[in-house]
């Protein structure tokens, strides 16, 4: 063997500089090809005339400028969908934030059957959404809803009753009830996620801080407002941001529960994009509709980055 060894091919794979990029390559390629590229395509589609039948952008003449945006904007349903998306998200997430705080506090206490309660409370998140929502769909059935039956039994529904004379409420068939139902199911679905994130934050509050507060004689409400909530604020922000994303971009609940009905009164951006883009075959307009999700997502991503950076600084 020679006295000095310079760059030896055999040891190429032992170098960080070689191995690092090599290891990252598949993930980066995957994400660029199937998230990055589609994201760009989403924008291109929105300015083009692609359809399911002809999904290719082949040349300049496939671009139509702001035609799609003009078309969807002039459509009454789109504006309904836009408003619904915002309203459903805001209302459901205010409720989620409130309930999640209560539920997290309950789950941080010790009591009999806690594991079971935890399992049940998490079901809406741990089961496939589409299947869980089917359960609600059936519970809110126009004829066989058990809620209707109970209301009939106690004399709230039926001939000569406050909600009568109909024998059914038609939960998913009347505008306001259907909108309420969609919000309710959103709460039901995102509550577990927000709760467990908060719970993680709650259990991370050092015991000695709580002990010190107990010794200082701080009562329940004082502890809540002066210790728990301020310490939980960053993690609450994380929980809220995730919950907002899931609620804001949801398609499943709107589709399975109401299919956007009655008369598009529960249509949201995602479902309307689906109906236009996939069912209606107009990929271009569908993409343009979905693109309206983007500003909110970008804002949330930036907020997340800030939070993560701050957390990083505190740990460092």
């Amino acid at each position: 063997m020679s006295a000095t060894t310079t760059r030896d091919e055999r040891y190429l794979m032992d170098r960080d500089r070689v191995l690092g990029p090599l290891f990252l390559l598949p993930a980066v390629v995957y994400i660029l090809a199937l998230v990055g590229l589609p994201l760009v395509l989403a924008v291109l589609y929105a300015f083009s005339d692609v359809t399911v039948a002809d999904p290719r952008i082949s040349g300049r003449d496939d671009f139509v400028g702001f035609d799609n945006f003009r078309a969807i904007w002039s459509d009454n349903v789109f504006r309904k969908a836009l408003r619904n998306t915002v309203v459903f998200t805001l209302i459901s997430q205010v409720i989620v934030l409130l309930l999640a705080n209560i539920l997290a506090m309950v789950l941080s206490a010790d009591f009999h059957g806690k594991r079971l309660v935890r399992f049940l409370v998490l079901l809406p998140w741990t089961t496939p959404v589409a299947l869980g929502v089917l359960g609600w769909f059936w519970m809110l059935d126009s004829v066989y809803s058990p809620i209707d039956w109970m209301m009939r039994e106690v004399g709230l529904l039926g001939p000569d009753t406050p909600f009568g004379p109909a024998r059914n409420m038609y939960w998913l068939g009347t505008t306001h009830l259907a909108q309420g139902a969609v919000i309710l199911v959103h709460v039901w679905r995102t509550l577990p996620l927000a709760t467990v994130i908060l719970l993680a934050g709650l259990t991370a509050i050092p015991q000695d801080i709580r002990d010190a507060a107990d010794i200082d004689g701080a009562g329940f409400w004082r502890q809540l407002f002066y210790i728990r909530l301020p310490l939980l604020l960053p993690i609450m922000a994380v929980a809220l941001l995730f919950a907002i994303i899931f609620a804001f971009t949801d398609l499943t609940i709107a589709l399975v529960l109401t299919r956007g009905g009655p008369v598009n009164d529960t249509q949201v951006l995602a479902s309307w994009a689906y109906f236009k883009g996939i069912q209606g075959g107009n990929l271009a307009q569908g993409a343009a509709i979905a693109l309206f999700l983007l500003p909110v997502l970008v804002a949330i991503a930036i907020a997340m980055l800030r939070l993560a950076r701050r957390a990083g600084e505190e740990t460092a």
Partner: peptide, 22 residues
């Protein structure tokens, strides 16, 4: 990379339908 997880399917499913068809 984690933030990529936040890009929702509802934003991507239409262009991806085109990609998949291609």
């Amino acid at each position: 990379i984690f933030l990529v997880y936040l890009v929702p399917p509802t934003l991507l499913f239409i262009p991806l339908t085109g990609v998949v068809a291609d």
